[in-house]
Design a binder for these strands. Structure first.
Lengths: 147, 147, 147, 147
DNA sequence: GTGGTCTAGACCACA
DNA sequence: GTGGTCTAGACCACC
């Protein structure tokens, strides 16, 4: 999965896991239908507890990004806009929470003296980076680099 | 100060307080030199402990946004870019952390199916809103609330 | 940890704690990756409150010298220059504050009539002492004191 | 006196006052026998309380740097080494306290990754700066700039 | 078992 | 009157 986790970070492990998966989806490395690494395997890979991985997957499930099927395991349920006419599916409450979070993050930079232009450019280039990787079919994995 | 705090939220009270102040600075409701509400008063206002408020102010101080003096209380020390040629003063590490946080937030929306345009527009309008309120000299509502 | 704290001193307990840890890092007694004594244990050891120890650790965290994780505890994150090409990471503002503090300390000795040579020698021998202890792999005294 | 005081700094006003005088002595702007500005005048000049100024002078007196004479006011009692064979007069305890303070300051820089050379150079240039100003007879004041 | 959060309440330093 | 310091003690999150 190409995921990196920092065991010392103050960010909880399960949260880091969730964040990396979300970013993976945005960058197209994980596409709708893709199967997530089974909890046991992932836990072993990172040397963390199964419950911790499970909690990360729980978060993703609660956000509707992942669907768990008893037989097929966990699969990605949503993904970047695909021009197929589909509209975003998250509910208003989730959207509002997201906007509040975005507001806080943007405010931090503005309060520190960054210009609106600089901030907007930063956001734009992050989005462009996601888009690039999506269109390049970047699978992230590839060369047996899963260690 | 017109700040609202949600005692139920899982976000720590002192963190919420810090977030609201940061947003206040970005929106120009709190300008460099302005005095923050005294810890005791704010604690009474929210029905929370003085130490909790103090910890929120601690954070702001660590970020360089606020300066505190036993007698004069806490005052805003930094603010939005003012076209005076001053450059942002936060250091590279803080900047990098901010960008990582922004990346995660943007990824959430993209993963949920929002288009890049929609996301960028959302960011743009938040920034524009800050700018508007700054230029309108928006004091937050009411004028006598600094006592 | 072999740390001593003076409960009578007008220097805040948490500040003393922070100072001793910083000195420990400089002298190589605490190396990047080393685990700090858990807050509760240290509090018991000194007969002070957990929150006080926590505040000391907060300071170190804010300076980037320590990283904290709920499960792993607090670990040293930075250390003396290691000739590995790494540059100091503290920001300009922190550096400037440090230099102002150094200026005041040096001025005290000069004003008291110490010669420049004497003062510089004092500084040099302190630094040499740090270096010696680092290269000697001085663990602080005893080997089993990390429990 | 050319002294600048920051009313918002977390450093107590009386401490700032004391620090600036100590630095003034080190830089030769204030020489043994020079008269310090009377407390009332200085208090008025800075818009601070007389007692605060008094407390700053108390500190200097306790350090033996200033002697107060009921008729002549406060005068500088000590100064930089003058090659007259006089030895530093501060007692061992004060000297030890100073060295402990210096140790902490130096440790901060080393812990942050500065090399011994860089730190020693910083100290050297500060001392050289003091010496320069002393030999240049820099009085600091001069052009009616006492406002 | 680790650290984080929060409370209630006391005392002190600064000005 | 302002904020800083410290205590005692409780509860929670993470793993």
């Amino acid at each position: 999965m190409q995921i990196e986790i920092d065991p010392i970070s103050e960010v909880p492990l399960y949260q880091q896991l969730r964040d990396r998966v979300v970013e993976g989806i945005a960058a197209g490395r994980l596409r709708p239908g893709d199967k997530l690494t089974p909890v046991r395997q992932l836990a072993g890979q990172f040397g963390i507890n199964i419950a911790t991985v499970g909690k990360g997957y729980d978060l993703l499930r609660a956000e509707g990004l992942v669907r768990t099927n008893r037989t097929a395991g966990s699969v990605i349920a949503r993904g970047p806009h695909t021009n197929d006419g589909s509209a975003p599916e998250w509910d208003a409450a989730a959207r509002a929470g997201w906007e509040a979070r975005l507001t806080t993050v943007l405010a931090e930079a503005v309060a520190q003296g960054e210009t609106d232009g600089t901030v907007l450019t930063a956001a734009g280039s992050i989005l462009a980076d996601f888009a690039d990787r999506r269109s390049n079919g970047d699978t992230g994995a590839g060369e047996n680099d899963n260690r």
